[in-house]
């Protein structure tokens, strides 16, 4: 299947990527020949059940692992190693440096990468801390913050870098349901503000439908592309009267039901 020709050049081009990693006694194929294009200002969601290699795929885009087959290109440049043009936001709360205050954490990225120094870095950091409504907590240490606040700091730190693409690895998965809802709304508001490009990994169908404008469905063991869908956040009903989220659910779990049927017979 050839990707459709795009009006705008893709920002991130993933073509035929097979990813393998070694555990202690197995060679695991995480994804098999996965291809997709992310356009500028996309909120591109990688959606799939656990074991579909979506996080591994994100790590490969981050430059933390090399594909065994296929290519990953950002703005036409091959991705070889981690770099500040792709900023990661992780699921774990310990992604903040506990020995730095909120402000210093946000400045850490700017200063370590050599993008900005001193006063300029501080101003930029405060600007993004304000965007995530944490100005009052700029001088607090991470351990005094709640989970949602920590994730907001991580998002501010990544966004302050103004990277080509934000990589989010289930950033809200460890939050309680109410906080998660609020964070999803806030993320969309931030997007309205700056129209950043984000590659968002999740295993939650409602989250994918709400957050994404383009959703890539991956099937598990190993991860293969199952579908690529558009979404406008409203979970629309298609011609046959099925909600988008239900369609996704059916596509992801149809196989499992078939498998179960096969076992029974």
């Amino acid at each position: 299947m050839n990707p459709m020709p795009h009006a705008t050049a893709p920002l991130l081009q993933v073509s035929g990527v097979t990813l393998q990693y070694k555990t202690r006694d197995h060679l695991v194929t995480a994804t098999y020949r996965v291809s997709f294009d992310v356009l500028p200002s996309d909120r591109f969601v990688l959606l799939g059940p656990s074991g579909c290699g979506k996080s591994t795929l994100l790590k490969a885009v981050g430059g933390y692992m090399a594909p065994t087959e296929g290519t990953l290109e950002l703005k036409g440049q091959k991705i070889r190693k981690p770099g500040p043009d792709r900023c990661m936001v992780f699921q774990e709360f310990d992604q903040l440096l506990p020995w730095k205050t909120v402000k210093r954490n946000v400045m850490f990225g700017l200063e370590s990468s050599g993008k900005l120094r001193g006063k300029a870095a501080e101003e930029k950091a405060m600007q993004y801390i304000e965007k995530v409504n944490l100005t009052k907590f700029a001088d607090s240490y991470p351990h005094t913050l709640s989970g949602g606040m920590k994730q907001r700091v991580a998002i501010a730190r990544a966004m302050a870098m103004e990277p080509d693409i934000l990589l989010m690895d289930e950033p809200f998965a460890a939050l309680d349901a109410l906080t998660r809802r609020k964070m999803q709304e806030e993320l969309l508001q931030l997007w309205d503000d700056t129209k950043f490009t984000v590659l968002f990994v999740t295993h939650s169908i409602p989250e994918a439908v709400l957050v994404g404008n383009r959703i890539l469905l991956l099937s598990p063991h190993p991860g293969q592309v199952k579908a690529e869908l558009n979404s406008d956040g409203s979970d629309p009903v298609d011609a046959s009267g099925v909600k988008l989220s239900d369609r996704i659910h059916n596509m992801l779990f149809a196989e499992q039901i078939e498998e179960m049927g096969a076992h029974v017979s």
Binding site: G62, G83, M88, G109, S113
Partner: peptide
Amino acid sequence: LRMVGRNYG
């Protein structure tokens, strides 16, 4: 944390 460090170069 290691990945964060490497992310920022």
